[in-house]
């Protein structure tokens, strides 16, 4: 009962805050002189939403972006976890790779995205790669920190119990590194959306980033709004999934 009340209260606040936001937005558009093709009213955006939802184009572009994001996230995650594990385990690997990794971080993703589109074509692959690239670093760092944070005493324990490599990874390193790792994934999940959109901006003929570009070109700001909101929901959904995953996997950890 208490839990339900608490939940309702939380949802109530969110609804309230959204309602206030909408009212302010509506008030702003009615009392200012800005024409609605420059700054649409909530109603315009709603109309636009209904029209693109009805003709199926919103779903189509959303699914394209979702696919890029999920594949990019998977790729980035996989590469970062493997590299991170190797880096955490071997000083030599760290010394060899870290200049490249640090250097790669100082290049903004928008600067390399055009190159990727040239190399991989305007199709889905260049978006997957921009998404993966942007996911890579935070997950990498957190994997390294996570693995390095595994207490030495527990390694000793595993050794004294004659655990083999796999048992050490599965029964010690993964669970011990998981909290920090999932923190990285949380950041990575939202970045993955940004990465895919950056890729779509540079050159694409589908996806939500492409839709934003189309709206901009046509001065269809309502379309831009609809696309941006969809992107926000996508990112929130992903973030929420990771938070959910955390709550399931890290239930042993006391919440402060």
């Amino acid at each position: 009962m208490k839990v339900i009340l608490k939940f309702l209260k939380k949802v109530g606040f969110i609804i309230l805050s959204l309602a206030v936001g909408l009212i302010l937005w509506q008030a702003f558009t009615t009392y200012s002189d800005i024409p609605s093709f420059i700054f649409p009213t909530p109603f315009d955006v709603w109309e636009k939403f209904l029209s693109v939802a009805r003709d199926g184009s919103l779903l189509f572009h959303t699914l394209v972006t979702l696919q890029e994001v999920l594949l990019g996230l998977t790729l980035g995650l996989g590469a970062a976890t493997l590299t991170g594990y190797l880096l955490a385990k071997s000083r030599t690997v760290e010394r060899v790779l870290s200049p490249y990794i640090v250097a790669s971080q100082s290049i903004p993703i928008v600067a390399i995205a055009p190159l990727l589109v040239i190399w991989l074509g305007p199709g889905i692959f260049s978006k997957i790669l921009t998404s993966a690239l942007i996911v890579f670093f935070p997950v990498l760092v957190n994997t390294i920190v996570g693995i390095r944070s595994v207490p030495v005493e527990l390694y000793e324990l595993m050794r004294s119990l004659q655990a083999n490599h796999w048992q050490r990874i599965i029964k010690l390193e993964i669970p011990a590194a998981l909290p920090v790792f999932l923190g990285g994934l949380r950041i990575g999940a939202t970045l993955a959306v940004i990465g895919a959109v950056v890729g779509e901006f540079v050159g694409a003929d589908k996806g939500l980033g492409f839709l934003v570009n189309v709206g901009r070109g046509l001065y269809d700001t309502s379309l831009v709004f609809v696309s941006v909101f969809t992107l926000v929901i996508l990112a929130l959904g992903l973030y929420g999934s990771v938070v959910f995953l955390e709550s399931r996997l890290l239930s042993w950890k006391k919440r402060e």
Partner: peptide
């Protein structure tokens, strides 16, 4: 054939009492 108790209890914080004790057998 050798059991060790370390100075710090050295338990896995994510495992319950029962699961900490089954660890050597799981391995």
């Amino acid at each position: 054939g050798v059991g060790i108790v370390f100075q710090k209890a050295n338990l896995m914080p994510w495992r319950s009492v029962l699961r900490n004790i089954t660890l050597p057998l799981e391995i």
